[in-house]
Write a protein that binds this DNA or RNA. Sequence first.
DNA 1: ACAAAAGTGTTTAATTTACACCCATGT
DNA 2: ACATGGGTGTAAATTAAACACTTTTGT
Lengths: 231, 231
Amino acid sequence: MIFGFNGDQIYVLLIDRENQLKNVISEYALPGNLIRDDENLDMAAERVLKELTGLSVIYLEQFGAFGDPDRIKKKEDQPWLKAVRSIPNARVITVGYYSLIRMSDYELNPSSFAKNAKWMPLNSIKKLPFDHLKILNSSIEFLRSNTKIKPIGFNLLPEKFTLNQMLKLYEAIFNKKIDNRNFRRKIINLNILDKLEEKQSGVAHKPANYYKFNKKRYETYLESGFFKFEF
Amino acid sequence: MIFGFNGDQIYVLLIDRENQLKNVISEYALPGNLIRDDENLDMAAERVLKELTGLSVIYLEQFGAFGDPDRIKKKEDQPWLKAVRSIPNARVITVGYYSLIRMSDYELNPSSFAKNAKWMPLNSIKKLPFDHLKILNSSIEFLRSNTKIKPIGFNLLPEKFTLNQMLKLYEAIFNKKIDNRNFRRKIINLNILDKLEEKQSGVAHKPANYYKFNKKRYETYLESGFFKFEF
DNA sequence: ACAAAAGTGTTTAATTTACACCCATGT
DNA sequence: ACATGGGTGTAAATTAAACACTTTTGT
């Protein structure tokens, strides 16, 4: 699961199976691939991500394993399996990872795969092959509960961001309105943001100040006792 | 991972590999087994648990997948693999589940396996074969963070329990002292406990009142909006 | 001058924390 | 009568929630 944020909505990166192979119903699916024999799970997830996006060193975390024997039995999924897998009906256990990427970064470095991958607004995804909808829902739940206890949202924002961008990100993740003043106070008091000497320019309103996530300070807090973070 | 509680400490059920098979170094390991082709992951976890303890319909939840190719490469683990597996060096991906069981229930129904399984105090486990120590640590982390947001502790307590038993359970899980009065207030205010008309008897002190977890009420709360639970 | 988003404080309610003594029972 | 764990309340501090107007810029 590759999550992105464009300032307004959460997006998910899907791959187009038709472009991967002709004669297969066109449908978008979650990105993924088989593991290699010499890789551990984390390495495989990193590799697949890199192959797809060209990106590395980003937030990546396992969220669950999915292994229903029926998950590859849907009739409509057979042609694709036959075309792509050497043993089309071999059992597949999926270990799900989710990653958070800055859509702005990504759009700057589209690799060759970009032709058959596509950002889809999370809320618009109604149908996916296999059990991918279940996997997607599970990853969102995981993202939400993780966002409640860790400041992972920064991975979805540009390096320099405004507090209102951040607010909108949290509203998108939790799918609800959040009070502007309370949010600012809470975030500022965490003391893990550096206020930059830089403001927006060229906007037709009061320019917002830019902030930056201070990862070192955050990690220091983590080590030395507790870090409280709740939404 | 099979967790139990005896009123004082958290225990973990380990199996003795020597009794499973002779000529193998005696060492306790986490219980587990290979999945069958027609099972999904949850079913397999339930089955293995049932085979081991005779228990079913208990709390069981997936907490992670472990698939480092080196996890079965330790020299000391080879004899056991050769003795037990048809393809001893085949790669094995473990999907970890943890379960919470009432040690009191279990002690009443020991199945034939009881001879080669053993409850070990969590804090005394220093060494385990393969990557089982990593798996164990990961499960504890999971147990803790889950205990913070869900009232799963009841699965480790007898059906009727006193608030002090519950307090001790939470102290054991989080490995710290908890204020008695504040704990009681918090738990009572959740309104998911029924105070029974029954007290301890035969104890040389003021007898404690028994309580029971009202699962229905809890589920009603879950559905109708939110349920707040924090430690 | 106006439109548009940024930024700012205070009051009230709810929650959390710290803390110490009396109670009911068995021996 | 005494030892043992059970059970109880209050005050202070902290945190969360609700709420509306002024500021700065571009057009």
